[in-house]
Design a binder for these strands. Sequence first.
DNA 1: GGGAAGAAATGACATTTGTCATATGAAATC
DNA 2: GATTTCATATGACAAATGTCATTTCTTCCC
Lengths: 211, 211
Amino acid sequence: MRVIIVDDDPLVSMSLKIILETDKVGDPIVVEATGTSGREGVELYKKLKPDVLLMDIRMEDMNGLEAGEKIIREDPDAKILLLTTFLDDEYINRALKLGVKGYVLKQDCKGLPATVRAIFDGQTVFGGKIVEKLPDIMNRKEKFDYEAHGITEKEKQMIELVADGLSNKEIAEKMFLSEGTVRNMMSSVLDKLDLRDRTQLACFYYQEIRP
Amino acid sequence: MRVIIVDDDPLVSMSLKIILETDKVGDPIVVEATGTSGREGVELYKKLKPDVLLMDIRMEDMNGLEAGEKIIREDPDAKILLLTTFLDDEYINRALKLGVKGYVLKQDCKGLPATVRAIFDGQTVFGGKIVEKLPDIMNRKEKFDYEAHGITEKEKQMIELVADGLSNKEIAEKMFLSEGTVRNMMSSVLDKLDLRDRTQLACFYYQEIRP
DNA sequence: GGGAAGAAATGACATTTGTCATATGAAATC
DNA sequence: GATTTCATATGACAAATGTCATTTCTTCCC
């Protein structure tokens, strides 16, 4: 199996090369080249068409994601394994959309040879911590800023009850307030959010607050 | 590394065992036991606490997902690799939520040892085809069956307008009906869905129809 | 102490909403 | 042609909703 390693830091490239090449199994892993920038990664990939491309994300010149995008655009079956130091939602998200075959933290890459082989075999590999984040990343959305709209804690609670379909009377009971007070609070909330009635508030809740 | 294999078909278990054990690298893979049902898988896991548990999904007695659930509930760090013949969205979804560490098609598991080693190392592995489906699976929406609730096309349209926050009068204009008719339709819809008012209908829409 | 500010409540009011009984007309069925 | 069916419409009604002015009470600050 032929691989290429691209990392800003030549020391890292060298370490990875050693780790991979000393893993003796039937099919040895051969590091055919190493690069130190995304631009170089793209060129090397075009020239050598390796089985797997290991690439850092944060690099000068051109980062791993941009490089990966260029490569995959030309060769949609390219097998790219991104190595990264941190676990940035935005990166993971973009990497996923890109169609990268692996996204692993440098910290826990002791088993790197196995990871590379699994990718070579057509699997896709994510570092443990990353998978936990997947669901969040998929349905990501900035959380709604009640503060910015001047919504108080009680009002926020009331909004949630409305979004559960409760009537004013029911809300009043739940919150130990009089129905009249709930009405007033409702009026205030609608005014703050520039809405007309409770139904619009419920819609707003599901569309903006908890999409 | 110690693993357990659970598969309905003893022939498969045996093949997998051979594949794994003949993979000679520094740390040999030892298949400590094989089972043929989910129930057995749970027992074996409790008793032997293997590093990785390979398990089929479709099995008699107790399927791989249920078994996986039981195991992970007791040991959240359990490393379970699900092997499957088909690529069923619903299974993948449940498996993901469960916290399984791998989901690979039996077809393309030539590199199984590498996969198992990657999982042992803390990574998570998905078969190639599966990743392509991830985005869909994550925000998958089981479509709501208007038909089954006896909701007509016009009523459906009205529901969507309510979920946009329109008043009866506005809905009437949009649909070229009288406001009274809209009220009647509303009444009918609320009755069919067993709801009380338009706000509950909006909530229902976002929770059940287009979650 | 004397405000000032804010949360909670009340009452009055217009509007919206949901329900129901009933009417109309057109299409389908017999 | 008569009947049924269905979508649409109307009017009447009670309940829920949203708005507003006002009051009460507490807390906080000078």
